[in-house]
Design a protein around this nucleic acid. Sequence first.
DNA 1: ACCTATTGACAACTAAATTGTCATAACATA
DNA 2: TATGTTATGACAATTTAGTTGTCAATAGGT
Lengths: 161, 161
Amino acid sequence: MPEATSANAELGPLIDGVRTLFHLLKAAAERVHGDGERSAARRGVLLSLHEKELQTVPQIAAARPVSRQHIQTVVNALLDDGLVERTANPDHQRSHLIRLTASGRDRIRMILQREAAIFAELPLPLDTEQLRRSTATLNAVAQAFHPENVDAAIRRIDSKP
Amino acid sequence: MPEATSANAELGPLIDGVRTLFHLLKAAAERVHGDGERSAARRGVLLSLHEKELQTVPQIAAARPVSRQHIQTVVNALLDDGLVERTANPDHQRSHLIRLTASGRDRIRMILQREAAIFAELPLPLDTEQLRRSTATLNAVAQAFHPENVDAAIRRIDSKP
DNA sequence: ACCTATTGACAACTAAATTGTCATAACATA
DNA sequence: TATGTTATGACAATTTAGTTGTCAATAGGT
């Protein structure tokens, strides 16, 4: 198992970068998508169903860092808008499987296509390899920050004065 | 000037990573700091004043991706809590220079120290170099996503059918 | 002296979530 | 098969972290 190292001293700037980028991306999403699908949560759910066709609400929620109840309200809104629909779940009567409708599929395709087009116009002085490595690092950090890990670390710190 | 490349296709996963990590970090901050200084904005302002002693509110705001008005309210709250104070600004009568009080300095020191201790306990299988590179990449991406760049990219896309 | 930009204060609003509660349904097991 | 536990959907109340807009006063440039 990997050991903690002094590398963690470098976490501060990374965290700052994540926060800054998060806000910039939020603002960018509004600019890019106008009033159609501005919400990151809606986009996230559509994307999740685009990648994995049939999922229950709790399954969608489990894969993202937000509460089940919140995903439920997002899915309900998408149902109202006709972008997703319920289908019978052989394993469960109350918990339907959710999937994209034709119009939902169109929507997420348009979103992704527009994003890709605009990203390609951004002055980004980075190559694929750098982005991939950075993403991998981010995911490793995310792993380290899973609630159980954080709680365990806090317990260790607080138990020794 | 750097050209856009197909690297931008790798932006999607990176963006997802940023969002996920942002939420995890938010949750972690609550766990780490309990009810003392849970808010990222308060912490950010304290940190900003810790790094650069005397700043006006607009100066603090300019360095972060949030509105001047919001930083103003955060600073006002910190004033109420006695963590920062106003000092005369030789260059401007209305716009005071803000600086940490002794108690504010203690607060941010404690925050940083506790964070460092807990980070050091996290199972993070990464070395300093990786984190530094990743941070640099994030900052480059943040640069690319500055509102003017995004708007310019949108204009280019929308002008060609 | 005049015009414009900046600042602090305040208000109203919004997005994106959280927590808590409830009734019902599913599941495990004795 | 009854029974306690967990999962689910629905709903409500609340919270956080911002936003935008407006105003009066003040600075700063020409």
